[in-house]
C-alpha cells in the first residue's frame, strides 16, 4: 500500500502543512521508505498482547475540579503574533 503523490497531498491536508506540489513526489518516496522499513513489525505475532498505554504502573492522580489560576489575560496573549482588545485575532471565519 504505497504512498503516492495524492496520498501525500491528503496527509498534508490532515496535518495542516502546506507542501508545494513540486515537493510531493520526493516526500512520497521518503515516506514510503520509512513505512516500508517499519513494515517489519508484521513479522511479529502480537495476538493477545494488549497495546501499551503507559510504561509506569500507576493510577493517574485526580485533582479537585476547581479553578486554580486566572486573571492573567495579558500574560496569555503576550506572545500572540496578532491580538486586539485582549483577544487573539485571526482571519475572518464567518461571512
Amino acid at each position: 500500500m504505497a504512498v503516492d503523490k495524492s496520498t501525500v497531498a491528503h496527509i498534508a491536508k490532515l496535518a495542516c502543512i502546506r507542501i508545494p506540489e513540486a515537493q510531493q513526489e520526493a516526500l512520497a518516496g521518503e515516506l514510503n521508505s520509512i513505512l516500508g522499513w517499519v513494515e517489519q513489525l508484521g513479522e511479529l505475532d502480537t495476538q493477545g498482547i494488549a497495546p501499551m498505554t503507559s510504561v509506569v504502573e500507576m493510577r493517574l492522580p485526580k485533582r479537585v475540579d476547581a479553578v486554580t489560576d486566572g486573571d492573567c489575560r495579558d500574560k496569555v496573549i503576550a506572545n500572540a503574533p496578532e491580538s486586539a482588545h485582549g483577544f487573539f485575532s485571526v482571519p475572518k471565519v464567518v461571512e
Partner: peptide
Amino acid sequence: VRYGLRVPGATLDEMYEATR
C-alpha cells in the same frame, strides 16, 4: 495564533497551512 511565527493566509486554514 497564540505564539510564534504566523504566515498570513486568506482564510484561517490557509494561515495554518502556510505557517506550518
